[in-house]
């Protein structure tokens, strides 16, 4: 049972990772002079979009999302509406945090917000897919020893890795190298993406390695 779950997760992660790869390669066909630095915003939106779509599709197909108690249409619409609201709130939250970290307030606000959208896609969207719009469950997962399934652990790892990646990505900005990737917010988005990919890779490996120690409460 363990191996099945881990294998399922690994393949899901592989699909998501390949979607990032595709988002980097595919637009070159459609967009003139496409490059990660030159047309950074296009790349960013492509990637965020594809990650979002693939995430939703994968988790919907796998049926990871928590079972809903009611099956009425209005309840589902309510859930969808709340998910969207949470997503937008999380974008605003990340935007605020990035501004607090020193991003300019008005100048390049679009770039900052794009970074916030990317971070939300990499973190909040996965939370919404796996846990649903349920704040209590989120708090449970992100407090110590709160993971109750393999997916919770993978969520912890990928979210942490993405945020730390973005955090580390801010370090090269003050260097006076005048490289194209030092332009705001390229290094941060690259850091977040790298962190996310690392998280996707690390989560199955880590869980496989620690499968003896991991004891989840039964649902």
């Amino acid at each position: 049972m363990w191996d099945v779950e881990i294998r399922g997760m690994a393949s899901a992660h592989a699909i998501i990772a390949s979607s990032i790869f595709m988002a980097t390669v595919m637009p070159a066909v459609f967009v003139e002079n496409f490059s990660v630095y030159g047309t950074h915003m296009v790349w960013l939106y492509c990637m965020a979009g594809s990650v979002a779509v693939v995430n939703i599709a994968v988790f919907w197909l796998l049926g990871i999302s928590p079972p809903t108690k009611k099956h009425t249409v209005s309840y589902k619409i309510n859930r969808l509406f709340r998910s969207c609201l949470y997503f937008i709130l999380s974008c605003l939250f990340f935007h605020t945090v990035v501004v607090l970290y020193g991003a300019p307030l008005l100048e390049s606000a679009l770039e900052t917000f794009s970074l916030a959208v990317l971070l939300s896609t990499l973190t909040t969207l996965r939370c919404l897919c796996i846990l649903g719009p349920n704040v209590q469950a989120w708090i449970r997962v992100f407090s110590r020893d709160g993971a109750m399934s393999v997916w919770d652990t993978s969520l912890q790892i990928t979210t942490g890795c993405s945020v730390i990646g973005a955090w580390l990505g801010a370090f090269p900005i003050p260097l006076d190298w005048d490289r194209p990737w030092q332009v705001w917010p390229i290094s941060c988005t690259l850091g977040a993406t790298t962190g996310f990919l690392t998280g996707l890779l690390a989560a199955p490996v880590w869980i496989h390695w620690h499968r003896k120690q991991l004891t989840y409460k039964l649902k």
């Binding site: 020193g102 900005i173 003050p174 006076d176």
Partner: peptide, 14 residues
């Protein structure tokens, strides 16, 4: 790194 010395405030704020 000389840049990080020049911009040490960024390190501390961060």
């Amino acid at each position: 790194s000389s840049s990080f010395i020049e911009e040490e405030h960024q390190t501390w704020y961060f």
